[in-house]
Design a protein around this nucleic acid. Structure first.
Lengths: 229, 229
DNA sequence: CCAAAAGTGTTCAGCTTACACCCATGA
DNA sequence: TCATGGGTGTAAGCTGAACACTTTTGG
């Protein structure tokens, strides 16, 4: 029985995570400056190896949790990378995941311990192996997906203002939107709830805080609605 | 050096292919009725194991070529499936690929030898392992992607008629389109070339043959065009 | 001459885009 | 009172959806 399998090769499986965040009006990625071999001192994505008793999804969750202390983060499988020499040490297949998180609530001690840093998209350094390519793939996916599904909200705090939301979409798509049109589209869609509280941290006048109402959104989707910016 | 890696586990990596075709107005999938162990007699996707000296893309190409004798088929990585017991014999991670091909030009001897059959979407049998789930994922991807990129043309012969094209999109999206609106949208897009030849195999009047002009299409895409039905 | 499929235009509604000024407030 | 960011409406153009009849031709 096992013979059928054992004529085949086995491979190391890495899980690498592209962790996106948004703060100070900028899209950022959580990157590691490695403090262990191999490639000591080089920059890389957050990653680890798949274990026998876990699925890829579980491995990705474990890796994210170990670094940030966060559970229940938006996370999705991206693509598997298998260039033969992508890791010069050994043949390793990497399954990439991307995550969207709120930069406010993660465990800073853990992140410091792993020597991880939030790096702006425009300031991404050379990463080890094919990690720059993986990151590029993730970014394309984020753009494509943000255009049709409201995943952007995963990057904002639970309560956010419309100017913040617009800033986020402008960071994702790298272009400016018209304030009035943007608000109109978002608000007429009907899945944002105005909390009637003003956030004055950014202006004297203050901007209303809103909350994403996923129940209303899901009801819309069932009726055939498709979010797009 | 190798120590760093060797504390980790290795895994079998399968590559499973969902091969879509279109004929007689129906979307079909090429499935294998297994004539070898394990699971003799059961239905499955086309698949194989990754080898040491090839990438996943190469493995997928090899598997497709061995079955159909075709090279240069549209093919894309879909997703990796890693449920621990998905294959009850051994732990196997499966990387799925989907392919779109013209059902006209494949090597029928090879296909017969592997006991493969074109099965209509509505008549998919119970498949081994999680292959039904994989197929379902592929179908969703095909629908999503056909909505924004002209991949449907991969399923038609090089020269095709507009009624054929419409039939294809109706099969993919499982709904009828208005003939006039469909033609208008496709033709005004400008990447179809009328060959001024009529195909009379389907009607006395005959329908004009068209060709997909990928140069024109790529030029459009560069200008920001986005295909959608 | 007729059955069967191919081909063809117009109208209306809703959506997207472009565009400029007033509002509220703390310092 | 003023500087700063937040908030608001309307008109024009474009796109998507609905809808029915004529054309061609082999048998």
């Amino acid at each position: 029985m096992t013979d059928f399998y054992s004529i085949n090769s086995k491979f190391y499986l890495a899980v690498d995570c592209i962790i996106f965040g948004f703060s100070e009006g900028e899209l950022k990625v959580l990157l590691i400056k490695r403090n262990l071999e191999p490639a000591f001192g080089d920059w890389s994505l957050v990653g680890g190896f798949l274990k026998q008793d876990e699925t890829l999804d579980q491995a990705a969750k474990r890796i994210l949790f170990n670094l940030t202390g966060l559970d229940h983060v938006f996370m999705e499988q991206l693509h598997s990378f298998s260039q033969i020499d992508r890791d010069p040490g050994e043949r390793v297949i990497s399954v990439a995941y991307y995550a969207l998180m709120k930069t406010s609530d993660y465990d800073k001690k853990l992140v410091t311990k792993h020597n991880a840093h939030w790096i702006k998209l425009e300031e991404i350094p050379k990463l080890i192996f094919d990690h720059n390519e993986i990151l590029e793939t993730a970014l394309m996916k984020l753009r494509r997906k943000s255009g049709t599904q409201p995943i952007g909200f995963e990057l904002l705090p639970k309560e956010f203002t419309l100017p913040q939301l617009q800033e986020l979409y402008e960071a994702i798509f790298q272009k400016k939107f018209d304030k009035r049109n943007f608000r109109k589209k978002i608000l007429t869609a009907g899945f944002l709830k105005n909390l009637e509280i003003k956030d004055k941290s950014n202006s004297r006048k203050g901007a209303y805080l809103y909350k994403f109402d996923s129940k209303k959104y899901n009801a819309l989707v069932k009726k055939g609605y498709n979010f797009s910016v």
